[in-house]
C-alpha cells in the first residue's frame, strides 16, 4: 500500500476523467439541452406555411424543368465569366492584403505583443463578417457590380488567408533566418531570402485553396448586388422565371465542381 496522504485511508478508483472534467462536461450537456429546448420553444414557425411545403417544393422543381438553356449565351455566360474574374482577382487582392497582416501576426517576425494582437484582431474581424455582408457595404460605396463583389471577396478572405499564412511563417525554420542575420542581411533581405523560400509552397497552396472557396462565394454575391451569377439568379428569381433560375443553379453546380477538380490537380502538381 502506498503511504497514505493526510486523507488517511485513500481508496483509489479507476476514473477516466478527473472530477472537474466530469462536472464541466455535465454542465456542458445541461447547457446544450437548455439551448435546444429554448430554441425549439421560441423559434417562430408558421404552421400554415409548412402544410403546403411539399406542394411548393414539387412546384419548384416542376417549374425549373426543362431548364432554359437558351438563356446561357444571352446572359449567363457573361455572368459566369464575371464570377470567375471576381473570385480570381478577389483572391489575388486578398493574398496581397493578407501578407502584411500575416507578417504582423507572426511572432517570429514581429516581436511585439501589441502589434501581434492588432494583426490578429484584423484577421478575426474580416473573417467574422461574411463576404455577402461585406458586399452590402461595398455596393453601398461603389454601387452594384463586380467591383463591389471583388472587394468583398478580397476583404473577407484576409482573415482566413492571413491566419494560415502567419502559421506557415511561424513554422519556418529559425536556423537559416539566423544565418542570414549573422551575415549582416537587413530585415527585408532576411524576409525575402530566408523566410519567403520556406513559406512559398504553403503560400501557393493556400491561395489555390482560397480561390476554390471564393468561386463558391462569388457565385452568390450578386444576390446583394455584387455582380456575376448571383445577379443572374436574382433577376430570374424576381421575374419568377424558374427555368432560368434552374439554368443558373446548374451552371453554379458545374463551376464549383470544375474549380474543385482544378485546384486538386494544381495542388498535386505544385507540392
Amino acid at each position: 500500500m502506498i503511504p497514505a496522504g493526510p486523507a488517511g485511508a485513500h481508496v483509489r478508483h479507476w476514473q477516466r476523467f478527473t472530477f472537474t472534467e466530469r462536472v464541466m462536461r455535465s454542465l456542458f450537456y445541461i447547457v446544450v439541452l437548455i439551448g435546444i429546448v429554448w430554441s425549439l420553444q421560441s423559434i417562430e414557425i408558421i404552421p400554415e406555411f409548412l402544410y403546403d411545403a411539399p406542394q411548393q417544393t414539387a412546384d419548384l422543381f416542376v417549374r425549373m424543368w426543362p431548364i432554359d438553356w437558351g438563356w446561357y449565351p444571352k446572359v449567363v455566360h457573361a455572368a459566369l465569366m464575371e464570377t470567375l474574374h471576381t473570385a480570381t482577382l478577389g483572391t489575388i487582392l486578398a493574398v496581397a492584403m493578407a501578407t502584411p497582416v500575416a507578417l504582423l501576426v507572426a511572432r517570429n517576425v514581429t516581436r511585439s505583443v501589441l502589434l501581434n494582437s492588432i494583426g490578429r484582431f484584423i484577421l478575426v474581424a474580416t473573417r467574422s463578417v461574411h463576404a455577402m455582408i461585406w458586399a452590402l457595404f461595398f455596393v453601398a460605396v461603389f454601387g452594384p457590380g463586380a467591383l463591389a463583389g471583388t472587394l468583398a471577396i478580397a476583404v473577407h478572405s484576409i482573415g482566413f488567408t492571413g491566419k494560415f499564412l502567419s502559421e506557415a511563417i511561424e513554422e519556418a525554420k529559425p536556423g537559416p533566418i539566423e544565418a542570414l542575420k549573422a551575415a549582416g542581411a537587413p530585415p527585408l533581405a532576411v524576409l525575402i531570402k530566408g523566410i519567403w523560400p520556406q513559406v512559398k509552397p504553403a503560400f501557393l497552396a493556400l491561395a489555390m485553396f482560397r480561390w476554390d472557396i471564393n468561386v463558391r462565394e462569388s457565385a452568390v454575391l450578386g444576390l446583394v448586388g455584387g455582380g456575376g451569377l448571383g445577379m443572374a439568379l436574382d433577376t430570374a428569381l424576381s421575374n419568377l422565371y424558374w427555368d432560368q433560375a434552374g439554368l443558373v443553379l446548374a451552371v453554379i453546380f458545374g463551376i464549383v465542381i470544375v474549380a474543385e477538380i482544378a485546384t486538386s490537380w494544381a495542388r498535386s502538381r505544385i507540392i
Binding site: G175, P176, E178, A179, L180, K193, G194, P197
Partner: peptide
Amino acid sequence: MVFQEYNLVER
C-alpha cells in the same frame, strides 16, 4: 559564421 545544422535555405 558556420553552424552546426548548416542553416542553409533549403529551397
